[in-house]
């Protein structure tokens, strides 16, 4: 009996599988070779380029990098602090603006109008302009000691500028929740505000998490705008070193520090977006 049994091994593949494997192997080999080739050319040719030595000592000076990096890192903590107290304020203010723009009650019309004007005006102005205007302007009014801090007014500028954008994200989220959800809530007797609070908003915010992540990344970088109005944060620290050492390596150091934070966050945002797309299609 055993003689008639076909011998099936895992290696016995269909025509299609054999073909696909061959293609896959070939493309792997080709891409490896081309990467090696390009890397070789770069390593061999770039140092030979005229002026490479100048570029290297000006931008990629190892000694300067080692010397300045710890101070840059501790200055970056200032950026993180500003980020961490700005982000919740932006979340709250932008949510308030989005809700104000969404209101339909006539008594609240001024609020609705204010929300519309606010988002239009503040989205139409460069954030750096707000930072200058508020960060220099308001302390310049002659406020007493603790209240003229550029940390306070720089934060205010960031919060005002970012809230206009984030409010639009929330508003889009609210509008993306299908009207049948509010109909279901209202039919159960829930009031308009309870419907918003317990049914629409939770879904709207969840849906907009990937979009919000992009603003998290942008804010992380834009905290450096405050360097123009005083706080010794990472960009200003790098600037100080650049002037002191007549070398641009501290800027590269600062860039490396930013990338260490922003790349993982960006990847995470992309992952969230991809997951959301999958949820919608399946």
């Amino acid at each position: 009996m055993t003689a008639f049994q076909p011998t099936i091994t895992p290696l016995q593949l269909t025509r299609r599988q054999r073909h696909d494997r061959r293609l896959k192997r070939r493309s792997l080999v080709v891409s490896c070779i081309s990467v090696l080739l390009v890397a070789l050319i770069l390593v061999l040719l770039v140092p030979k380029a005229p002026g490479w030595e100048a570029v290297k000592s000006s931008f990629f000076n190892w000694d300067i990098l080692v010397k300045t990096f710890p101070k840059l890192l501790s200055a970056f903590v200032v950026d993180l602090k500003i980020f961490f107290w700005s982000a919740p304020l932006i979340f709250i203010l932008s949510l308030a603006i989005a809700l104000a723009r969404n209101t339909r009650r006539p008594a609240l019309f001024p609020l609705r109008l204010f929300g519309a004007v606010y988002t239009d005006v503040l989205r139409g102005v460069p954030v750096i302009l707000l930072v200058y205007l508020i960060g220099f302007g308001i302390p310049g009014l002659g406020l007493p000691r603790p209240y003229n801090s550029p940390y306070i007014w720089g934060t205010v500028a960031l919060v005002l500028g970012y809230s206009a954008y984030v409010a639009e994200v929330f508003r889009a989220g609210i509008e993306s929740v299908h009207s049948s959800q509010s109909a279901a809530a209202r039919s159960l007797g829930l009031s308009e505000s309870d419907t918003m609070r317990y049914v629409v908003l939770p879904q709207a915010i969840r849906r907009q998490v990937p979009a919000l992540m992009n603003f998290v990344i942008a804010l992380l970088k834009d905290v450096a705008l405050l360097s123009f109005i005083g706080p010794i944060e990472i960009l200003r620290q790098a600037n100080v070193y650049k002037s002191l050492m007549a070398n641009f390596t501290p800027y590269v150091g600062a860039a490396i520090i930013f990338l260490c934070v922003t790349i993982p966050v960006t990847r995470y945002a992309d992952y969230l977006l991809a997951r959301q797309r999958n949820e919608r299609t399946t």
Binding site: S180, Q181, A183, A185, S187, L188, S191, V199
Partner: peptide, 18 residues
């Protein structure tokens, strides 16, 4: 309408669960 709606239940074709 809110106090009236709570006395009348409505079930939808598309469920509309939260």
């Amino acid at each position: 309408p809110d106090p009236i709606r709570r006395r009348i239940g409505l079930v939808f074709q598309s469920f509309n669960l939260f």
